[in-house]
């Protein structure tokens, strides 16, 4: 038998980096909703604990959900400005919100424990989010990695060299491989691309500048970009001839395979209960494009 607090302690022992439990901003890693005394019946990893994922977790007999995003549609009261989100909803607004109330009732009725594991997971020597995404794309053998083994997916090893193709067929291939709809691209569709940088989550201008120091880089792939920051930065970069483009997968699409990596990692030291990756799936659908 393992209780939720023991699960956290087990993760702390195995994460391989000094545990950061208190952030000066946003949410901390650990239990966001639920009790540390809950007996864990099974573990689900997912990008974001949607009501649908929580229902599937309960249906499969699992009550601990480990995620990157918080359940209440915000990255917290003290979220750093670089997340470019608005203020968290006030307690009054949240408490009276029918959507959150329904979710909260479902969580407590089913004795669920929602656990955040982001900062410590990301601080590991191997970037599990990057490795998961690379493998989901089938790019492992195209990875330009100075190291090997645990060092191969060092967070700085973001470069891949792929067979030369047009930006449009490159983006189409990614979209189909990840089975998502809302992939957005900046750049000329006919531009030839080969060397790419793969990242995940929200790309900031400072990240882009660092990644772009690599010579001969054609395209950067990431989850999302602020449309008055890295978005127009890449529009201008393409106009100036400094790169071929930017491919935005969506946050969920770019981060979800990392939750699969996390499930495999957890199985290495949590053996008492079943562990399953349950992708939240892309939230969006899209219309066919005119022209």
């Amino acid at each position: 038998m393992i209780r939720s607090q023991q699960l956290i302690e087990r993760i702390q022992k195995n994460v391989g980096v000094p545990w950061q439990s208190q952030r000066s901003d946003g949410f901390s890693d650990g239990i966001l909703v639920g009790s540390g005394d809950t007996t864990v019946t099974g573990i689900v990893t997912t990008f974001t604990p949607t009501l649908e994922v929580l229902r599937k977790a309960v249906d499969s007999g699992k009550n601990a959900v480990i995620c990157r995003e918080a359940p209440s549609y915000s990255r917290g009261e003290r979220a750093p400005a670089f997340w470019r989100n608005g203020p968290a909803p006030s307690k009054d607004l949240l408490d009276n919100d029918a959507v959150w109330r329904a979710k909260q009732e479902f969580i407590s009725r089913n004795n669920l424990v929602i656990i955040r594991l982001v900062d410590n997971w990301d601080a590991r020597k191997t970037d599990g989010q990057l490795r998961g995404l690379s493998r989901a794309l089938g790019w492992d053998s195209s990875h330009v990695a100075p190291g090997s083994g645990e060092d191969a997916y060092d967070p700085r090893n973001v470069y891949f060299r792929l067979p030369t193709t047009s930006l449009s067929s490159f983006a189409e291939g990614i979209r189909k491989k990840l089975n998502v709809h809302g992939v957005r691209v900046i750049g000329k569709p006919e531009a030839k691309v080969s060397k790419v940088a793969l990242t995940h989550g929200l790309l900031l201008v400072a990240d882009a500048e660092r990644i772009l120091r690599e010579p001969d880089l054609d395209v950067v792939i990431t989850g999302d970009a602020v449309e008055w920051e890295a978005g127009p930065y890449f529009q201008d970069l393409v106009t100036a001839g400094g790169a071929k483009g930017l491919v935005l997968l969506g946050d969920e699409a770019s981060e979800e395979p990392g939750s699969g990596e996390m499930a495999e990692w957890l199985k290495g030291f949590v053996t008492e209960v079943p562990i399953e990756w349950m992708p939240a799936g892309e939230p969006f659908w899209t219309l066919p494009q005119a022209g």
Partner: peptide
Amino acid sequence: REWEAAEYMRDAIA
């Protein structure tokens, strides 16, 4: 941001 409006709407519908 995707973790705000899109996830909120997804749960509203669910």
